[in-house]
């Protein structure tokens, strides 16, 4: 990959992030309600106090450039303001508390579903019309078309409420996180199982359907005929010739998905009361906690951009045609 290609992608990402910061700033300034009223929440507030507060927070200055400049400045310093709902807590620490659980859930889910989904899709597409294809594609389509809560709720009914194998919600039992070493991990794993299954099943459906069609498309390429003409074993034709080419569109898809799911598989988190960014988003929305929402939006947008950048870089490594 050339430095020029890398530089272009990087520049593109930086420009996009700058645009996001600007949009994020304007969007929340256009929302109804004024911050000082929500914070001070006293209808008998005297005009002087309001004025003083506005002056203290810089709200008396014009939106552009003064407020924008100070917003960008503090954002760059990593200061995203203070939460309305979680009084006194900086937005960064509110979000930071929730990033871990989401990354654990969604990161593992992506990993599992990418491996399983691609394997199923590749095999189904290669043996099109075979048993794996007919069963796998049907199931995948059903899973792909179901929202997370539709996948998740039957799992709760059967495996948590019915069989009682797993807890219904949360990330830890009461005091579970404080138990000695293997027990705390086991407790976490039991809580993780159902939400992880939900997220993974949905993504497996998506990945296997797309991998299947990608393999089918690749299978009719001339270089596959060449590989067959070489008398190579079927498995070798698939692994060495069809698979690397069919993976190219998948790389982009997985990386972009990764960006979106940082925002939390919101419904999956809500169904299982998973303390991640998804539940935080809903809580913040209900409380009109603009600073937290703003922070989450910024985080999600930036991770989508970064994931795209990663996709471009990986794509460039896999496909020699884009290296220049």
């Amino acid at each position: 990959m050339s430095a020029r290609y890398l530089g272009q992608r990087l520049l593109q990402a930086i420009v996009t992030i700058a645009a996001i910061v600007l949009l994020n700033f304007l969007l929340f300034r256009l929302m109804p309600g004024s911050p000082e009223r929500i914070l001070l929440r006293n209808p008998n507030l005297s005009q002087q106090v309001v004025e003083a507060t506005r002056a203290r927070w810089g709200l008396d200055k014009p939106l552009i450039p003064d407020q924008l400049v100070s917003y960008i400045g503090s954002t760059l310093e990593g200061d995203l303001g203070y939460s309305f709902k979680f009084r006194g807590q900086p937005v960064t620490s509110v979000i930071a508390d929730r990033v871990g659980p989401t990354l654990l859930l969604v990161g593992l889910g992506e990993l599992i579903s990418a491996i399983v989904g691609i394997a199923i899709g590749a095999y189904a597409g290669w043996r099109r019309g075979g048993l794996v294809d007919r069963v796998g594609s049907g199931v995948s389509l059903v899973l792909y078309s179901m929202p997370y809560f539709v996948i998740g709720m039957p799992l709760i009914v059967i495996f948590a409420a019915g069989l009682g194998w797993f807890p219904t919600s949360g990330m830890t039992s009461v005091g579970g996180g404080d138990r000695p070493f293997p027990d705390n991990i086991i407790d976490l794993a039991r809580h993780l199982a159902l939400p992880l299954a939900t997220v993974s099943l949905g993504l497996i459906g998506q990945y296997s359907i797309l991998m299947r069609s990608s393999i089918i498309e690749t299978r009719s390429e001339d270089y596959i005929t060449t590989a067959r003409a070489k008398g190579l074993r079927d498995g070798r034709v698939l692994r060495a010739h069809a698979f690397p080419n069919a993976m190219l569109p998948m790389v982009t898809l997985i990386a972009i998905n990764l960006g979106y799911v940082i925002g939390g598989a919101i419904t999956a988190e809500i169904v299982f009361s998973w303390p991640g960014l998804g539940t935080l988003t809903v809580t913040a929305l209900q409380a009109r906690d603009y600073p937290v929402l703003q922070g989450i939006f910024l985080l999600v947008a930036v991770s989508v951009v970064v994931a795209n950048l990663a996709a471009d870089i990986i794509y460039g490594m896999l496909d020699p045609r884009v290296r220049r």
Binding site: D222, Y223, R228, G231, D319
Partner: peptide, 25 residues
Amino acid sequence: QLDRYRWREISIVFQGAMNALNPVV
């Protein structure tokens, strides 16, 4: 069984070498 004869006994030069060669290898 035919794999034994493919390429070792009968090989093929295809028409459009751009498409007949794998682009990522």
